[in-house]
Nucleic acid binder design. Structure first.
Length: 473
RNA sequence: GCUCCGAUGGUGUAGUCCGGCCAAGCAUACCGGCCUUUCAAGCCGGCGACCCGGGUCCGAAUCCCGGUCGGAGCACCA
């Protein structure tokens, strides 16, 4: 195994003793490769400095929740080796958000607004305050309690945090902190419809949970701005923030809603479909959790955007899986040929060229056996040329037939070496991430192999019953 | 359009804060050679980058200004 110089994540700023960090996915589905980045980065820092890593499930938008995610996300994290020390679910904390809202309303920092959506938006865009902005705290408190009690329906009232109507970013101006949901929330039941918006619950939680450092994407920069008002109204000290650049991952669908659609329509067989890049699917194909960690550490914590490199990722994974990947012969476009010559033939082939302790697979072929070889390989041999069936024998092409090359001179260099399968090999298929399927035959003793295998001259795969999933070359 | 941010080889990064040890390191990819009964792995060698233009300075990838290109945000989503 070659030496690799380890990259090191930059130190966090303003660390005093232990850190408290968090990852905050919304439970809209299982985690995918994009989530693995924030999970691992946070985990690395908590492991470096010591402290807490909080998993906070952000489920304040009932339209965007898949109950399955509540159980799968912790499993995904465990598989990644991310050590969560505490889990909180925002829908359990509604009372806390209501309380914090009442405090802010009482101090005149928040008000209840009854404008329709469009006019609120338009006046804010122009920096004009809505008429409800100056209503008195007592009335606002009353109105807020009516919202909590379900006296308003969606669209009739929102709670708004006062900020600065002249702020250069219109979205930071008086922003909506509570709205009445339209759908039933799977966890809070029938009678709860008032939910904080993300910026409100995040600011409150980050403070109350004692976060010292928050690392998140650059898409949250303006949210940090918005949230800062809650900190200053309450006299709270904000955590140290770092916003990292966006990494686009080619060929990976990162939108859970699209994946879900595909599952419903039948395009994908489930969250672990070979075409997807959920952690469930990548685990199933044979990616190792250590690969994710190494890649994200190497990729670092930078403000610049970048493009994910499958080349590098797969290369790291190859290093992680190769020593345990037993070699097997898989023959595509199989053609049966007879090896004449009357010799009794047998083969004993190591499962791994460098790890002989993994054993061999042995085949007794008898005399004049038939074997499968790929027609592509046969076609590539010129008349009179030699083809070597790996670990079995040399064949010489004579017109359209192949004859055993007696003497079996293995010192012969530059002969074409190809994989082959015994005549009783079963049909086999490999599902590929692009949705296609490769078919062929596989040697019988593949049934003794579990997990990740390297099909020689084909690629790494992970075996399942009766077929395999393509991992990478 | 407005606000903010960024720019190192094909790709991913180190170095940029505190200018000299950077005629720019590492990985991956590619090319050549070695090894080899896999087009895997391994070994040796090679190719290849500081966006452009000014300025400051003895000295700039690093600091300043301008330009170009790229990105993010501008929700009753997170």
């Amino acid at each position: 195994m070659k030496k690799v110089q380890e990259h090191r994540l930059p130190d966090l700023k303003n660390v005093h003793g232990k850190v408290v960090m968090r990852m905050a996915p919304s439970p809209s589905g299982p985690l995918h490769i994009g989530h693995s980045r924030m999970a691992i980065l946070n985990d690395e820092y908590v492991k470096r400095y010591g402290g807490e890593l909080i998993l906070r499930l952000e489920d304040t938008n009932a339209d965007n929740i898949d109950p399955f995610a509540y159980e799968q996300i912790p499993r995904d994290l465990e598989w990644l080796g991310v050590k969560v020390t505490r889990t909180v679910i925002q829908s359990d904390r509604l009372a806390i958000y209501y309380d914090e809202a009442r405090k802010l309303i009482g101090k005149g920092h928040m008000y209840v607004c009854h404008c329709d959506r469009e006019s609120f938006k338009n006046s804010r865009q122009q920096g004009i305050a809505c008429p409800h902005r100056e209503s008195d705290p007592a009335g606002n408190l009353e109105a807020f309690d009516m919202m909590v009690a379900g006296k308003f329906s969606s669209g009739e009232a929102v709670a708004v945090l006062k900020t600065d109507m002249k702020h250069q970013n219109p979205s930071v101006r008086d922003w909506i902190s509570f709205r009445i949901g339209k759908s039933r929330h799977p966890r809070t039941g029938e009678n709860i419809f008032l939910f904080p918006t993300m910026n409100f619950s995040v600011a409150v939680d980050d403070h109350l949970l004692g976060l010292t450092h928050v690392i998140r994407g650059t898409d949250h920069i303006s949210n940090t701005d918005k949230q800062s008002y809650i900190y200053s109204y309450n006299g709270w000290t904000p955590p140290e923030y770092f916003h990292y650049g966006f990494i686009s991952i080619p060929d990976a669908i990162m939108k859970t809603s699209i994946i879900k659609q595909g599952i419903v329509s039948g395009r994908y067989k489930g969250w672990d479909d070979v075409q997807l890049h959920t952690l469930m699917a990548m685990k199933r194909r044979g990616y190792s959790p250590e690969t994710f960690r190494r890649y994200w550490i190497e990729s670092g914590l930078r403000v610049q955007n970048a493009t994910f490199s499958w080349e590098i990722f797969n290369s790291m994974n190859r290093e992680n899986v190769d020593s345990g990947a037993k070699r097997l012969f898989f023959v595509t476009s199989p053609v049966k040929i007879r090896i004449g010559g009357g010799t009794d033939m047998r083969a004993s082939i190591p499962f791994h060229p460098e790890h002989r302790e993994l054993g061999t697979r042995d085949y007794e072929l008898g005399s004049d056996p038939e074997v499968f070889v790929s027609s592509d390989d046969l076609d590539s041999v010129v008349d009179g040329g030699i083809l070597r069936l790996k670990d079995l024998c040399n064949l010489r092409r004579n017109g359209n037939s192949f004859e055993l090359e007696q003497g079996k001179d293995i010192s012969l260099k530059s002969v074409k070496i190809v994989q082959w399968c015994p005549a009783d090999s079963p049909d086999f298929k490999v599902l590929r991430p692009d949705g296609s399927t490769d078919t062929g035959v596989i040697e019988p003793l593949h049934s003794s192999v579990r997990g990740i295998s390297q099909f020689e001259r084909y690629g790494y795969v992970r075996l399942e019953k009766g077929y395999a999933l393509f991992l990478h070359n």
